[in-house]
C-alpha cells in the first residue's frame, strides 16, 4: 500500500499531467486559429497580386496615365524624322528592317528594352545621330496564333494598317511605341477597334478622321500583306521580331529574336 507521501506525489503528478494536457490542447487550438488567419491573410495577398497583375485585359491607359505614356514615347522618339513606318533621317545610310506583330510580347520587349532588347539604345545612339533608320514591317505571329479565337489575319490587318495609317501622317512610330507599351495579354482578344482607337487618340498631333479612313483600307491592307509575304517568302521568317539590315556593303538577315544593342551595333558596322 502506498504511503501518504507517495499518494500526494501521485496526485501532484496527475494534476501536473492534466494541466500540461490542457495547456497543450489550448496551444493546439490557438495554433489552428492562427493558421486559419495566416491562410486568410495569404489568400488576400494572392488576390491583390492577381488583380494587380496586368493579365486578362488590355493595358490601355486613360487620362494622366495615358499622357505619361505619351511623354515617355515622345522623349524617346520626339524630334526624329519619320516617313511612313520609317524612323530616322532619310539620309541615314543603314536601314534596319524590323518585322513585328503589334500583339507579339517579344517584339514589345525588344521595342521597350526589356530582356536585353536593344531598340531604345539603338534609337538613342544610331537613329538620332543619323547613322541608321528603322523601318517597321508586318509579320503575323502572336495575332495569328490558332489559340486566339479573336485573332487571325483579319485582326492583324486592322491593327497593323492602323500603324501604317498613322504613318501617312508621319506618326507611325508613336502608334507602334504606344501600342507596345499598352499591349494586353496574348490571345485575350484585347486588340479591338476600341483599343486601336484608344491608342490613336493618345497621339495629340494625329488627325483622327484621316487616320480612321486609312485603317483597313485596301491600299494599306495590301501593304501589310506584301510585308508579310516578303518576310515569309524572301527571308523565311516564321517568328517575330525578325530583322534584316542594309547599308553600303549590302543586305544581311539578322534572324529572329531579341537583339541587344551590341548585336545591332555590330550589324550596323558590318554593312557600313
Amino acid at each position: 500500500m502506498a504511503s501518504r507521501k507517495e499518494q500526494k506525489e501521485q496526485a501532484r503528478a496527475t494534476r501536473i499531467a492534466k494541466e500540461q494536457q490542457a495547456a497543450a490542447q489550448a496551444q493546439r487550438a490557438r495554433r489552428l486559429q492562427v493558421s486559419v488567419a495566416v491562410t486568410a491573410l495569404a489568400a488576400i495577398v494572392v488576390a491583390v497580386a492577381i488583380v494587380l497583375s496586368s493579365g486578362g485585359s488590355s493595358g490601355l491607359k486613360h487620362g494622366s496615365a495615358a499622357s505619361a505614356v505619351y511623354k515617355t514615347v515622345n522623349a524617346e522618339i520626339g524630334g526624329i524624322p519619320q516617313s511612313g513606318t520609317t524612323l530616322g533621317r532619310p539620309s541615314a545610310k543603314v536601314t534596319l528592317n524590323y518585322w513585328g506583330d503589334l500583339q507579339c510580347p517579344i517584339c514589345r520587349d525588344f521595342t521597350l528594352g526589356v530582356g536585353g532588347g536593344g531598340l531604345p539604345e539603338f534609337i538613342a545612339k544610331d537613329v538620332r545621330a543619323g547613322i541608321a533608320k528603322v523601318h517597321y514591317e508586318s509579320l503575323c505571329t502572336a495575332t495569328c496564333n490558332p489559340a486566339d479565337p479573336t485573332g487571325g489575319m483579319g485582326t492583324f490587318n486592322v491593327q497593323q494598317s492602323a500603324a501604317y495609317s498613322a504613318g501617312r501622317q508621319n506618326l507611325a512610330w508613336y502608334y507602334i511605341e504606344l501600342f507596345y507599351r499598352q499591349q494586353g495579354a496574348e490571345d485575350s482578344g484585347y486588340a479591338t477597334r476600341k483599343f486601336i482607337n484608344g491608342i490613336a487618340e493618345q497621339i495629340p498631333r494625329l488627325n483622327l478622321g484621316k487616320w480612321q479612313a486609312g485603317v483597313s483600307s485596301k491600299v494599306l491592307v495590301s501593304q501589310v500583306d506584301s510585308s508579310q509575304t516578303t518576310g515569309i517568302s524572301t527571308y523565311k521568317f516564321n517568328a517575330t521580331p525578325s530583322f534584316t539590315i542594309s547599308g553600303p556593303k549590302g543586305t544581311a538577315s539578322l534572324g529572329s529574336g531579341i537583339l541587344t544593342y551590341s548585336e545591332l551595333a555590330a550589324a550596323v558596322k558590318a554593312v557600313s
Partner: peptide, 24 residues
C-alpha cells in the same frame, strides 16, 4: 537578356520560357 535563358520547349519560333517571361 533572354539570350541567357536555357529552355527545352518551343512556342511560335521562340523558346517557351522566353514566351512566358515576355508575357504580360
Amino acid at each position: 537578356g533572354f539570350g541567357a535563358l536555357v529552355c527545352l520547349g518551343a512556342h511560335n519560333g521562340h523558346s517557351s520560357c522566353e514566351t512566358v517571361q515576355s508575357s504580360v
